[in-house]
Design a protein around this nucleic acid. Sequence first.
DNA 1: TGAATAGTGTCTGTTAGACATTATCCA
DNA 2: TGGATAATGTCTAACAGACACTATTCA
Lengths: 231, 231
Amino acid sequence: MPKTDPDWTIIVTVDVVLFALRDKKLHVVLSRRPNEPFAGQWALPGGYVHKQEDADSLAAALRVLRSKTGITPPYLEQLYSFADGARDPRGWSVSLSNFALVDQTVLASAQAAAPGFGFDLVEVNAVPRLSFDHNRIFDVALKRLRDKSSYSTLPCYLLPEQFTFAQVHETYEHVMGVALDKSAFRRKLTEMDVLEECKGQRVGGAHRPAQLFKVKADVANRLRLLERPLA
Amino acid sequence: MPKTDPDWTIIVTVDVVLFALRDKKLHVVLSRRPNEPFAGQWALPGGYVHKQEDADSLAAALRVLRSKTGITPPYLEQLYSFADGARDPRGWSVSLSNFALVDQTVLASAQAAAPGFGFDLVEVNAVPRLSFDHNRIFDVALKRLRDKSSYSTLPCYLLPEQFTFAQVHETYEHVMGVALDKSAFRRKLTEMDVLEECKGQRVGGAHRPAQLFKVKADVANRLRLLERPLA
DNA sequence: TGAATAGTGTCTGTTAGACATTATCCA
DNA sequence: TGGATAATGTCTAACAGACACTATTCA
């Protein structure tokens, strides 16, 4: 880690805004900073790029996220890079910021495997004051998630691999923060041809059982035009 | 500039994909690299971030672009950050990449003021092999410009401040690479309420003169939600 | 008056929202 | 059979593409 501060040294970090659903509401993963600056305060999971270990910025983001939370999310993409002389008291710094989505299954298994990780899920409407410029990063991430959700299958990454139509519908509503007509929504997803039926798989209680769906194999890639597939 | 290469030093540069119109076709500004690596070869205008001079990454991009081409573009936004250990032979590096738009007027005055700048305008369908991973950066920039043009007034930055409807129409067609119905296009721009008439200002030859328009003052800001206004 | 470009009007097929209806399960 | 949720159908108003038409200038 940089201790001296010659003219040409610039701090390069990665940060991740990781979204998940809990109680049908959109949450974000936050952790307490172990070290100065801002020791003990809330922050987005993040850390230095290690050029010996990290092939590229996405690999760095995955490594850092794994080390801080134990989670390897099924979706990760670059968000924006915040780079200036004021955002970190240690000096001119770059935050290669990413946003990621994780479903309850992966999240739960990560928590079960290593309950010692100090992270919390916080409802997106109740995010506390964060370290550095992380509130700004979070705001940009939430906006980007909502924008992209209106024309992509992104919210499906918040659900388990198989899900019902009602679940997708509800998830989109919670992510976007608006009500969506059930019929029109179903029509749209159908004609976009992004989901496939899990034949025979149905779930339900004391009522008509619902068809289970999953995202078609080729669709996931369509969403990651700029990115490489995750390791 | 870094000569030694301790474990924690990472090269941080800014690069700019600068678009302009010439002969009604979309061009990109390229310059010859003055130094190794890739000395003498084509590259996007770029350079090191100077943390003493540059307040943030956009300021760095503007300074570098001005120093390499003499141009200060009316539109600049961050594109993506390319960051890995392979893109630069000198080691692990970050390119804070931006894309920018400039109109013929600003371009011409920059060229007139300092004809010594070694840059060229190259048609976007005839971009040569570039240094580093700059071809990849260019591809991403062109895609982003086209995507964003379909729902924004971005192409207007390629035109002088005042322009006719025919000019905007033609510009959009050349940027997007497809034909657009004149009537439908006009309807859309009208109902989006992004242009205002320059009262009384009309131009024309031996035919009906055309109304001059300009982008409404508040619209420019709508496009720069993530960015700060340029200095 | 004709050539040339500017600008408007109309028709039509498609689509999204609103809402009604039918379907299928369990108790 | 009734309650509950799943899934589909219908009506309508708004919209986009295609294209025809009118308007205005100069030579």
